[in-house]
Simulated scan of single mutants.
Amino acid sequence: MQQFIDQLNAQIPLEGYLVVAAIMFAIGAWGALIRRNAVVVFMCVELMINAVNLTLVAFADFLPGAGGAGAGYAVLIIAIAAAEVAVGLAIVLAIFRTRRTVNIDEVDSLRG
Score class of each variant (00 low, 15 high):
residue 52 V to H: 02
residue 8 L to V: 13
residue 102 V to E: 03
residue 74 A to M: 10
residue 49 I to V: 14
residue 98 T to K: 13
residue 57 V to M: 15
residue 7 Q to L: 07
residue 48 M to W: 01
residue 44 C to T: 14
residue 85 V to S: 05
residue 61 D to T: 10
residue 5 I to C: 08
residue 54 L to V: 08
residue 107 V to G: 01
residue 48 M to T: 01
residue 63 L to F: 13
residue 60 A to F: 14
residue 101 T to N: 05
residue 107 V to T: 13
residue 102 V to Y: 03
residue 19 V to W: 09
residue 100 R to H: 15
residue 34 I to M: 06
residue 54 L to Y: 05
residue 96 F to E: 07
residue 14 L to R: 14
residue 37 N to M: 05
residue 54 L to M: 10
residue 4 F to E: 12
residue 57 V to E: 10
residue 19 V to P: 01
residue 43 M to N: 12
residue 1 M to A: 12
residue 107 V to P: 00
residue 85 V to E: 00
residue 100 R to V: 02
residue 56 L to M: 14
residue 49 I to W: 01
residue 57 V to K: 07
residue 45 V to N: 04
residue 20 V to D: 08
residue 12 I to W: 12
residue 70 G to P: 06
residue 99 R to V: 09
residue 63 L to E: 09
residue 111 R to L: 15
residue 10 A to H: 09
residue 105 D to C: 04
residue 91 I to P: 00
residue 66 A to S: 15
residue 53 N to I: 11
residue 43 M to Y: 12
residue 16 G to E: 02
residue 110 L to W: 04
residue 91 I to C: 03
residue 85 V to M: 12
residue 25 F to K: 02
residue 61 D to S: 15
residue 91 I to A: 08
residue 79 A to Q: 04
residue 40 V to F: 10
residue 42 F to R: 00
residue 60 A to S: 15
residue 79 A to S: 12
residue 60 A to P: 04
